[in-house]
Design a protein around this nucleic acid. Structure first.
Lengths: 120, 120
DNA sequence: TTGATAGTGAACCATATGGTTCACTGTAGG
DNA sequence: CCTACAGTGAACCATATGGTTCACTATCAA
């Protein structure tokens, strides 16, 4: 819990790259080697290795090397905290929006009252 | 829809900074000027202005300058697409997990059957 | 008019990011 | 043993990021 904010930092940063999001989607389908991923995303082995490392650091992927090949699979983290943060933001947003709505309603009815007063 | 991926890029990047997440939370409470935010997060006006620009670029904040002061408020975007992406990932993750579960169950029952066969 | 206040933009700085090439290690297969 | 293959790490490069200072503009208030 202590590292909650740092964790959000690294996870959101990990998700901010289209290639890494693609890798996650690919691994949602089946496990894959670095070579598989590098080919799929038209990138050098070294480049893909870096992306995988970032995802691994964020806990979104785990890897295991047997023989020559390192197999990557979805990691232990399920983006719970990220989903929670976003959900909370949506709540706050709605609350603000509702408050604005109320204000508009209030102004409308006030306007109407003013108009009626003027009419008399 | 065309810019869906680019949008995810910029939004997740915007969310990957603790100061910017803080600003969003702060604005969920009430609107604020650049000066307010800069003080709250112990930063120069220029520095805070940059963060606000990033958030504005991502559609998470809107600003309006009247007189000297620029007022910032929560923007039109509610992280719908980000929430959807994350939710989808969680689904895929669960599907993979369930598949693994089934495999384990399968192996377990096979093992049991083998044991019984051996016992005879 | 004059001074303080709010923000802006350019320039600068250190560090991070996303990618490459190249040289290397370790393993697999004949 | 020999060759090919999978990955790794260091070095390098261009660009982006997160922050600052400084000089400037525009506005508010006395």
């Amino acid at each position: 819990m202590v590292h909650y904010q740092a964790r959000l930092d690294t996870t959101f940063a990990a998700l901010s790259d289209i290639t890494r999001r693609g890798v996650l989607e690919r691994l949602g389908d089946s496990d894959a080697s670095i070579t598989d991923l590098a080919q799929r995303f038209r990138m050098t082995l070294t480049g893909m290795k870096k992306h995988v490392s970032v995802l691994e650091q964020a806990g979104l992927v785990t890897t295991e090397k047997v023989g020559r090949v390192r197999t990557c699979k979805l990691g232990p983290r399920r983006l719970e905290e990220e989903a929670a943060w976003i959900e909370r933001h949506r709540q706050l947003w709605s609350a603000r929006f509702d408050a604005l709505d109320e204000l508009v309603e209030h102004l409308k009815s006030k306007e109407k009252a003013d108009a009626q007063r003027k009419r008399r």
